[in-house]
Computed example of a mutant assay.
Amino acid sequence: MQRQIIDTIEQFHTIIIHRHVRPDPDAYGSQFGLKQLLQHNYPNKNIYAVGTHEESLSFMAKPDVIADALYEDALVIVTDTANTERVDDQRYRKGAKLIKIDHHPNDDVYGDLVWVDTTASSVSEMIFDLFEVGQQTKQWQLPHHAAALLYAGIVGDTGRFRYPSATLKTFTTAGKLITYDFDREKIYNGMYELECNILHLQGYMYQNFIMDEHGAGRVDLTKAVLQQFNATPSEASLLVSSLGDVKDMKAWVIFIEEEDNIRVRLRSKGPVINTLAKQFGGGGHPLASGASVYTFEEADEVYRQLQVLCHK
């Protein structure tokens, strides 16, 4: 599949890369890492990366703003996005050809070419695989900035290599990436340093979470709480892994109230939770998933079902 993707890339003069809404480091890492990789090896092509910018990821990159006309006769590549509803910038449909590169379960099969590898720790890891095939067949080179972006994406989706998704291949890939000239400390600082108000919000979470006798945890971050700490929903989402530090916690959910809905952030140390997320219109990985609900009564039902999963 990698060779098919490379052959397709070579056929197009304009390439537009999309990723999912509410991006995380792997979304940016795979999207912008691919952009930098292709720009370096095809300097005469027009290559763009689009979507709503996430301010907390400014240390990685910033998206391009492009006109609709550029989609005519363009190749569109969507990275790290399981289903079409979550593609950031629905103009992705306007291109001449569509490629999906993802590591989530392939429940929504879209695209003319589909490369899904659920064994990959991240799509950033997959982009490095693509580079290595291009290196062997087309003498591709990986610029240092692209290596930094891919490394950040892998670090983000593996929780600094703590999650089970970090395989021997993941560590091997990371080992190759760190041979490139980039500042790892700068990446870690950009990803994990927090403003004081967000750390205070984290303290609120530790003081106010609940956990039942079976290890199912929950914390509610309402609009009032976010306002109290001058935090945005996106900033609150940076704290989703915090409850994983709690002893005997099996799985947990953080409800983050937004203007029109309640964001559901699910994490687990064992019970499979993406099936629960799918019941509420979301999805994700077996141990890291998300969804949206519209009332706290629905949120209560999510938590009840999470308790059932932890009780099994």
Rank of each mutant, 00 (worst) to 15 (best):
N208I: 08
Q305A: 04
H285E: 01
M205D: 04
L168R: 14
D64W: 01
R93N: 07
T173S: 09
W115V: 06
A291M: 10
Q2S: 06
A174Q: 01
E297F: 02
L306V: 11
F255G: 00
E259Y: 15
Q307D: 02
S234W: 07
D183V: 10
A174Y: 00
G290L: 09
Y206D: 02
K62C: 07
R162Y: 05
K35G: 05
V155F: 02
Q4I: 08
V246T: 10
Q2T: 11
E301C: 07
S237G: 14
N230S: 14
G217I: 09
T14M: 08
T295C: 04
A27F: 11
Y188W: 06
F131T: 15
L130P: 10
I99G: 09
A152H: 04
V272C: 13
D80K: 03
Y28I: 12
T167N: 11
Q36K: 15
N83S: 14
S122Y: 00
D107Q: 08
P63S: 03
A67M: 03
D7W: 06
V116E: 02
R218W: 08
L194D: 13
I16K: 03
A146S: 14
P63V: 02
V272E: 11
E257A: 07
F182P: 05
E195T: 08
A67Y: 05
D88S: 12
N208H: 14
V264R: 05
V65H: 12
M1T: 13
L201N: 03
G217W: 03
F296E: 02
R22Q: 13
R160E: 11
A69H: 08
I15V: 14
L266M: 08
F131R: 10
V87R: 06
P25R: 00
K35L: 13
F296Q: 11
G203V: 03
A251W: 00
D260F: 12
D64F: 08
I99P: 07
V21C: 10
A96K: 09
S165R: 11
F128L: 14
M205G: 06
Q90D: 09
P143Q: 13
Q307P: 00
I256E: 01
L238K: 03
F296N: 11
L226N: 07
G190S: 05
G217H: 03
K138T: 10
L276N: 04
L194A: 08
L168A: 09
Y294I: 01
L57I: 07
F255H: 05
V78S: 02
E54R: 00
I101T: 09
I6R: 04
L226R: 00
G244V: 13
A231E: 09
H13E: 15
G111N: 10
I17H: 06
V65M: 11
Y151Q: 03
A27H: 04
V293S: 12
Q228D: 04
G203Y: 01
H214T: 13
G33N: 03
K94H: 11
Q228N: 03
N46Y: 09
V264D: 00
A27I: 05
Y204R: 00
K169H: 14
W115M: 04
R184C: 15
L306D: 01
Y92S: 06
L75Y: 03
D112P: 02
E54F: 09
E257N: 02
L113Q: 07
H103Q: 12
G33R: 12
I66D: 01
F255V: 01
L199S: 06
G284L: 07
K186L: 13
G51M: 05
M126E: 04
H20S: 09
Q135A: 15
Q141S: 12
A67G: 03
S242G: 04
